[in-house]
Each structure stands twice: as structure tokens, then as C-alpha cells.
Simulated assay, not measured.
Amino acid sequence: MDIQRQRKLFDRQASKYEMRVRKRGRDHQWRKRLLLSAKGNILEVSVGAGTNFSYYPQGASITAVDFSPAMLEKAREAALEENIQVEFILGNVEALELPEHSFDTVVSTLSMCAYPNPDHVLRLLSKWCRNDGQILLLEHGLSTNRFLSRLQKAFDPVYKKRIGCHLNRDIMGLIEDAPVIVQREEHAVFGAVHLIWAKPQS
């Protein structure tokens, strides 16, 4: 999908993402569990409406990136509500230039489904993370359940067109091929949701 069209799709969904921040659905349990490990100088890619902000430690240094101006506006509002300091960057993660090995924690939550080149993004996350840092991922993808995976594959074209992301990505396969070392992993919803604690390969 053309990046401009994808950006417009996410701009239109910004208010729905803001509602998720307040709704506190099941994904919040996963976010809280994962982000208990977040510390130091934190980079969050595809920050959306700032759903993760309430789970970061007080006083953390946070850099948040998104390519959607509407999403970043919602994220700014969320940062004010949480009374946290965040440096916001409007930009496409795949084309972003950040100093190498400059972040203690790199976070991606439910964003690998949308990138045109998720393998490239995973390499970038590893590059931006300090060698002794951590990469925290909460991602959804193709289920290990045959029936559910068939549904995901069938509905993927419609979901991509209307929502802007994929249902059928092999997230664990992408992570296995990425320059990261998985230290801990948890899976939910018939193997379609993954919580990953990792570090960059030296």
C-alpha cells in the first residue's frame, strides 16, 4: 500500500485509537506486563495515540515516533494527561535516521502488522538499541490454530485495505530472522499475540 494512503487511513482512525487508551481492554494487560521492564532512555516506534504512556516509569526519557500527524496529536494529549515528558518525531519509521545504539529500551506494540518491510524495521530497532539494552515487542500475527489462521488469511486483503495492516504475518518467523536474541516470550489468543523480551545481537 502507498505510504500516503496508509497515513490517511491511520489519521482517520486516531479517535478510535484514543478510545482504546481509555477503554483499558485486554491489550492493556499485555502492555502493562511487557512494559514493566521498560527503563532508561526509551524509544517507542509507531506510538499511535500514546496507549503505552501510563505504563512507563516516572522520570523516563521517552522518544515517540509516528507517521500520522493525527495520531501524534492524540499522543501529545495523552502525555499531558500522564504528566510525562516526551519528544515527538513525525516520520516514517522505515526511513528514520536515529543515532545507533542510543536507547536503553526500544518498544513496538501492535505495529509490525502495518509496516511494508517489517524485517527492515526489526533491523532498525536492533541498530538503535544499546548493546546492553532491551527490545520489547507486543505484536499480533498469524495464529498457530489452523481454523483461525485460515480466517486470517481470507480476511487479510479486506483488513489491509480498510485498516491499513495485515492479519497474517508470521511474527515469530520475522523475529527469528532478525538480528535480535529472544530472552523471553509469551503467547496468547491461540498463538496470534506475542509478547517478546529481546536484546540486539552483538
Rank of each mutant, 00 (worst) to 15 (best):
E139I: 06
Q183G: 12
Q58H: 09
F88L: 03
A188H: 13
Q134K: 09
R169C: 10
I62T: 09
G59P: 15
A95I: 01
L80V: 13
S102D: 02
Q4W: 00
D2V: 02
T144D: 13
G141Q: 12
F53Y: 15
K39C: 14
F103M: 04
Q183E: 14
Q6M: 08
V21N: 04
E186Y: 09
Q85C: 01
K74D: 07
A154K: 10
D2N: 13
A38D: 08
H194C: 10
I135N: 07
W128G: 04
H194F: 14
D27N: 06
M71L: 04
G191R: 10
I89V: 05
L138V: 14
Q4K: 08
E18H: 07
H140S: 15
L195D: 12
A79R: 03
V65I: 08
P118G: 12
Q152M: 01
P179Q: 07
Q134Y: 01
G25T: 01
E185S: 15
L151D: 09
L36G: 15
D27S: 12
G141W: 12
F147H: 11
I196P: 11
K153I: 01
L80D: 11
I181W: 05
N145D: 15
E82M: 03
S202D: 05
H187D: 12
V45I: 15
D11F: 01
S143L: 08
F88W: 07
V189I: 15
D132P: 10
E87V: 05
W197I: 10
P157I: 00
G133D: 12
M172W: 13
R123W: 11
E82C: 01
R130H: 05
K160A: 02
D27M: 09
C129I: 00
V45A: 10
E77H: 10
H194E: 11
D170V: 11
L80T: 05
E94M: 06
V158F: 09
H120S: 04
F155R: 08
Q85E: 04
R12C: 00
G59N: 14
Q152E: 04
I171M: 10
D2Y: 07
R162I: 13
R20L: 06
D170G: 08
K23S: 13
Q13D: 05
F103E: 08
C113I: 09
C113E: 13
Q4S: 07
S37F: 11
F88C: 12
N92E: 08
L110A: 13
E73D: 02
A79P: 12
E18F: 00
S126Q: 04
E82F: 03
R20C: 00
P179A: 03
V107H: 10
F190S: 15
E44Y: 03
N117R: 05
G40H: 11
R184Q: 10
A64K: 01
F190E: 15
L124G: 08
G59A: 10
R22C: 00
M71N: 00
S126F: 07
A78W: 06
A114M: 07
Q29G: 13
T51F: 03
Q134M: 12
